[in-house]
Amino acid sequence: MKNKSDFDLFFDLNFNSLNQTGFEQWFATMAACVYGGDFELIKAGGPKGDKKSDGRRLSTETIFQCYAPESPAKFASNAATRMADSFPEVVEFWPTMRVWHFVHNNDGGLPTSASDKIEELRKAYPSIKFLSGSRRFLKDELHDKLSLQQLIHLYPKAALNIEGVQMEHIRPLLKRIITERGKQFGSTEFGEIPDRAKLEFNRLSEASKFDIRRARSNVDVVGRFLDGQSNPAAVSVIQSAMREKYLQLVDLGYDPDDIFFKLCDYVRNTATSEEVAASHVIITYFFDSCDVFENVPVS
């Protein structure tokens, strides 16, 4: 990725999928990059925890508080109560606070109950300025002000050149599996038609689904490698190895996201960015060809 606008997909993914601690960490990382030494992050610990702060901007005496529950419904029902319960402690911990900034993941804005609660707080604490911000604040005031290098640091996977995966990257990884497993494969049966609901059925996270959708742009490289095998048994060797490894990971109790990334690790020889990108493309191919992960049962 060469342009800052290329990272908008990653912003949308994080805003739409991160909640609770993940959302707070994402916000704090961006704020620290934009505000530099003017931003102070309070690490939770001891009887005071994080002092009801997800970050403090020193020059403006702004205290940021994040609230990012798992769903809009939970936000609507709990946001006002969360403000009412936590704000007296915020004032106690930060007596010099001039601005309280409520950062949240509810893209539709504040529900009436939360808006009313902020109005109550404004009247009760007239010396404090109350702000709330969501997608536009995070995008315009933080994300879009990051440098290209900071964006790469924030989103390590963006450095993976999925579109640049070529046969030279795929061939040695799959050849190794053929060589190592050629004499071991059994009679595992495989599905043929990928189901559109397969991503949802396998309970993959939004981040993993994003990785798979992104890698789909280049799975034809794997298909061309398999079609070019002079010995048809070589394809069965790879299919069998993938399915066996998948079932092994399931039996060990790994969750779907861990399984996806451990399958990627399985096909890699090294941890170079080229091989990491190639491994994502390979596993996505076998995901769509129904050799790994489960298909939606036919009702």
Rank of each mutant, 00 (worst) to 15 (best):
D6M: 14
F7S: 08
L9D: 06
D12L: 12
L13A: 13
S17N: 11
T21A: 12
E24Y: 06
E24V: 03
T29L: 09
T29V: 06
V34P: 01
Y35V: 01
G36L: 11
G37V: 11
G37A: 12
D38W: 07
K43S: 11
A44S: 12
G45A: 03
K51L: 10
D54L: 15
G55S: 02
L58G: 05
L58T: 05
T60P: 00
T60Q: 03
F64A: 03
F64E: 02
S71F: 10
S71E: 09
K74T: 07
S77W: 01
A80N: 02
R82T: 07
P88W: 12
V90S: 07
P95E: 01
T96S: 04
H101N: 08
H101A: 06
V103M: 02
N105K: 07
G109K: 01
G109P: 03
S115F: 10
K117Y: 09
R122D: 06
A124P: 08
P126I: 06
P126M: 05
S127M: 11
I128P: 03
K129V: 11
L131C: 02
G133H: 03
G133P: 00
R136K: 15
F137K: 13
F137S: 09
K139Y: 15
L142H: 05
H143C: 08
D144K: 03
L146T: 13
L148W: 07
Q149S: 14
H153Y: 14
Y155V: 15
A159G: 13
E163I: 04
E168F: 05
H169L: 00
H169Q: 00
I170D: 02
R171T: 14
R176K: 12
I177E: 03
I177Q: 02
I178H: 13
K183S: 11
Q184P: 00
E189H: 05
E192K: 12
A197C: 13
L199P: 09
E200I: 09
F201V: 02
A207M: 09
K209P: 08
I212C: 10
I212R: 08
R213V: 15
R214F: 14
R214C: 14
V219F: 05
V219Y: 04
D220S: 13
D220W: 10
V221A: 06
F225T: 04
L226M: 01
D227M: 12
Q229G: 08
Q229V: 04
V237L: 01
A241K: 06
Y246W: 00
Q248S: 07
L249Y: 14
L252A: 10
G253A: 14
G253P: 08
Y254D: 10
Y254P: 07
D258I: 07
V267K: 04
R268T: 09
T270P: 03
A271K: 15
E275R: 03
V276L: 07
I283E: 12
I283A: 11
F286L: 00
F287L: 05
C290F: 02
E294H: 04
P297N: 02
P297Q: 04
V298S: 12
S299M: 10
